[in-house]
């Protein structure tokens, strides 16, 4: 393949990746309730309708709450697990590091029905708490992976040096370990938040009657009179998704320059 052909193939793939996103963005402005192409008349009325929609607002609030708590749980447990696996050799260490990968490798539906039947077995009420626990399972893994990768690239001698200089365990963590893993925590936390915000299968089986944003979309996309609002919500989610990518980009440039500055 020549360079021209390669360039053409690259452009074709980009078109394939972005045309569907562009089209659904256009439909958010479609005045007609029927989703036919081409769009004949444009309007911005659906944005006000979406803002006014009680269901959308409630779902959005629930999604934010769940994503926040799932992220918080994951940050604490994920980094603790990473520190433990990285620093100590203990019985079952390999098993733990393998086990932490499972929620990602297993199909979502398996995790979902496992949690669902446990919630039934334990006689717990389905609600926000069960969604958070469900989401935390895979969020922990994301944070763990980020932190463990960072720790592997960091020399253990800086912690030893800190101890040698008379710092206690807490001071070493506060002034040495934490600054090292901080950006990994940020990246992992952001990814965990985004994954939880987007999660649908585990949510379906742990939410009971509550609706997060993806569940709301799924429940309403077959209703012709709700589709225009679904389109607006879809456009909003697409715009929202550029935020973490932008932040991550800023973050990586910041850390490289920051690290260089500190040296």
């Amino acid at each position: 393949m020549g360079r021209g052909a390669l360039r053409l193939a690259t452009i074709a793939v980009l078109v394939f990746l972005y045309v569907p996103i562009g089209i659904i963005a256009l439909y958010a402005f479609n005045a007609n309730r029927a989703q036919t192409w081409p769009i004949t008349k444009y309007t911005t009325d659906w944005f006000a309708a979406a803002l006014d929609n009680e269901g959308v607002r409630a779902a959005f609030g629930l999604s934010l709450t769940v994503a926040f708590w799932a992220m918080a749980t994951a940050l604490v447990l994920g980094s603790l697990a990473a520190l433990a696996v990285h620093r100590y050799r203990f019985f079952g260490r390999d098993a733990l590091s393998f086990a932490l990968i499972l929620p990602i490798a297993l199909p979502g539906i398996v995790t979902a029905i496992a949690l669902n039947s446990s919630v039934h077995a334990l006689d717990v009420q389905f609600g926000t708490l069960t969604i958070v626990v469900g989401h935390a399972t895979f969020c922990v893994v994301v944070v763990y992976n980020n932190v463990v990768a960072r720790l592997r690239r960091t020399s253990a001698s800086i912690e030893e040096a800190s101890m040698d200089l008379g710092a206690d365990t807490w001071q070493t963590f506060r002034y040495v370990t934490f600054p090292v893993i901080r950006t990994a925590l940020l990246a992992g936390g952001m990814l965990a938040f985004a994954l939880s915000f987007d999660e649908i299968i585990v949510t379906q089986f742990t939410a009971g009657t509550q609706e997060t944003i993806p569940i709301w979309i799924l429940n309403h996309l077959h209703q012709p009179n709700q589709r225009s609002i679904v389109n607006v919500v879809a456009l909003f989610l697409i715009l929202l998704s550029t935020l973490p990518v932008y932040l991550a980009n800023r973050l990586t440039t910041d850390t490289s320059s920051g690290a260089a500055g500190r040296l």
Binding site: L14, L17, Y18, P20, I21, I23, I24, Y27, Q35, A194, F197, D198, I200, P214, I217, L218, L221, V230, A234, L237, I238, S241, T242, P244, V245, N249
Partner: peptide
């Protein structure tokens, strides 16, 4: 960045876009 960006866009939104 262009390849990475769609991964952050909601899974359901991308499926829904195709169903439309």
């Amino acid at each position: 960045m262009a390849v990475l960006l769609p991964l952050w866009a909601s899974y359901l939104v991308r499926v829904y876009a195709w169903s439309v």
